[in-house]
Write a protein that binds this DNA or RNA. Structure first.
Length: 530
DNA sequence: CAGTGAGCGAGCTTCCGCTTGACTT
């Protein structure tokens, strides 16, 4: 019996199974949506992957014929043979092949590889979209384009370069250093960053200095700023090597313990006199929604998670439909997501806490591909963390909560702060003129901080950023001092990288991709050591 | 003559990036 016309389907191929299910629901009858589950073909990884007819060819193991215009040898990934067979079977009933892989360099290449492998005899269309809503998908399927061979060539070049660099350099290391270690465009830079940081720490020479504080009867402290017109050394006068900066050398007073104790002695309980006061308003803008890298950084600092744990939890949230795709370098939200964030902010924190106009953010990542949205709660209205608490595990809840807050905060109003600075005169009993300074900062309008607090880390705890209210004072007023205290400080070497701070650095340098940040860290730790 | 040990040669390791399960540690 001849096949009825209605048996023919339009085959749509995306990269991720979760995406396939969702899009399948939006496209409906006549469409079959399948996932390639990532790349289906690659250069041979090992000798066993090389087809019989290429086994004797010298360059086959490297997978690149450098004598012949760097022609690559592609083989089906061993774990994708069943998937390819499945797609080939579906093609038999297809009247059209629609390639809906991600709109980035790798996605375009996956689409091309699919065409090369499936060899369709039916029309081929390339469909792209940046958000998964019914409207966006409908529009995308009606406005298809052709494959972009510039992008495909760019991907092939990247692939060949990485292969030649990594597969030629690594064997040199086996011979000269030890077996099984490796080198590559990404991992070698990551390793070098860590080595350089360690060298900085080794070259670091710790300097000691002392400072003074006046503990006032009004409940605030003021720290010593000047003695006889000379500024007392502060953290910012020391360079990365731990020594006093060149330009600070001549004009600062570096107090040692004896000097500090002498000043305490000579000040006794001298009151402070208000010399000047200054108030300056500050506004603070919310941060953009999460990318893979910033999510890893925040989960690291707030939840104490490594990059891989964060990604595993995020993957579960994504597969169960709670968040959008978790491997992204984009800070953009869809129009519907912006709307949802603003509605959530309005109902929970009030209309005055929502930004006047929808906020859009510019990504600052080098080489960003922006094939996906930022990481955000899924759906056209965001379920609050509280609503989802019963169905999420403890870790899933913690990460969803972070994503929800960051997304909602990104559409909220600026926070307003008032910073206060009061300088005081005090005279030592041996006639030295000293100036003390008190800083205060008050949040006058929480804005986005109502949803997403600034985090206090060990590094910024000492700075004058905390919410500290100073009492009202007038010029010339004297303030009673309970006691003067002094304290010794040491400059600290630059901190070692943590997993998230290394990811941040790599991203700044344009090295690695959202799908590989976690595995880079794994690789440089897994390789054998001497 | 069977079992053992030294010596030799062959084959393997490895890159980066895109995706999930199916496997063991």
């Amino acid at each position: 019996m001849a096949k009825a016309k209605t048996d023919l389907i339009k085959l749509v191929i995306v990269e991720s199974p979760a995406k396939a299910r969702k899009i399948g629901g939006y496209l409906g009858d006549g469409y079959v949506v399948e996932a390639s589950v990532g790349h289906i073909r690659d250069l041979p990884q090992r000798a066993a992957d090389i087809p019989k007819e290429y086994k004797k060819i010298a360059w086959a193991k490297e997978g690149v014929d450098i004598e012949n215009d760097f022609a690559p040898l592609y083989v089906i990934n061993p774990d994708k043979r069943a998937k390819v067979a499945e797609l080939q079977a579906l093609m038999k009933n297809a009247e059209e092949l629609i390639l809906a892989t991600d709109e980035d360099r790798e996605g375009e290449a996956i689409a091309w590889h699919l065409v090369e492998v499936l060899q369709p005899k039916v029309p081929i269309k390339r469909m792209v979209f940046n958000e998964i809503t019914k409207e966006a998908i409908q529009e995308a399927v009606e406005n298809t384009r052709d494959l972009d061979y510039h992008l495909i060539d760019a991907q092939e070049t990247r692939r060949v370069l990485d292969r030649l660099f990594g597969y030629r350099l690594s064997p040199v290391l086996w011979k000269k250093v030890m077996p099984r270690i490796s080198a590559g465009r990404v991992q070698s830079v990551a390793t070098r960053l860590i080595v350089e940081k360690e060298r900085e720490r080794m070259a670091f020479i710790s300097s000691a200095w002392w400072d003074l504080a006046a503990v006032t009867a009004l409940g605030f402290n003021a720290r010593l700023l000047e003695v006889d017109g000379k500024r007392v050394a502060a953290t910012s006068d020391f360079g990365a090597d731990g020594a006093v900066k060149e330009k600070s050398l001549s004009n600062i007073l570096l107090l040692d313990e004896a000097g500090a104790r002498g000043l305490v002695e000579s000040l006794k309980a001298t009151p402070l006199t208000v010399k000047s006061m200054e108030e300056s308003p500050r506004t603070e803008r919310p941060k953009p929604p999460f990318t893979t890298s910033t999510m890893q950084q925040d989960a690291g600092s707030r939840l104490g998670w490594g990059a891989q744990i964060t990604m595993r939890i995020a993957q579960r949230l994504y597969e169960n439909g709670y968040i959008t795709y978790m491997r992204t370098d984009s800070v953009n939200l869809s129009a519907q997501a912006i709307d949802a964030a603003r509605k959530a902010a309005k109902s929970l924190y009030g209309a005055d806490h929502v930004a006047d106009a929808p906020r859009t953010y510019l990504g600052k990542t080098k080489n960003a591909q922006e094939a996906h949205e930022a990481i955000r709660p899924a759906g056209e209205t965001f379920k609050t963390p509280g609503e989802l608490a019963p169905e999420l595990s403890r870790d899933e809840f913690a990460l969803y909560d972070l994503i929800w807050k960051r997304t909602v905060a990104s559409q909220m109003a600026d926070a307003k702060k008032m910073q206060m600075r009061v300088d005081f005169d005090a005279q030592t009993n041996d006639g030295k003129a000293t100036i003390f300074r008190a800083n205060g900062s008050v949040i006058t309008f929480a804005g986005f901080l109502a949803a997403y607090d600034d985090i206090v880390t060990d590094e910024n705890k000492d700075e004058e950023t905390e919410d500290k209210r100073l009492p009202a004072m007038t010029l010339g007023q004297t303030v009673k001092v309970n006691e003067y205290t002094c304290e010794g400080h040491e400059t600290k070497p630059p901190a070692r990288y943590t997993e998230p701070t290394l990811v941040k650095k790599l991203e700044e340098l344009g090295i690695g991709r959202p799908s590989t940040f976690a595995s880079i860290i794994q690789t440089i730790q897994d390789r054998p050591c001497i």
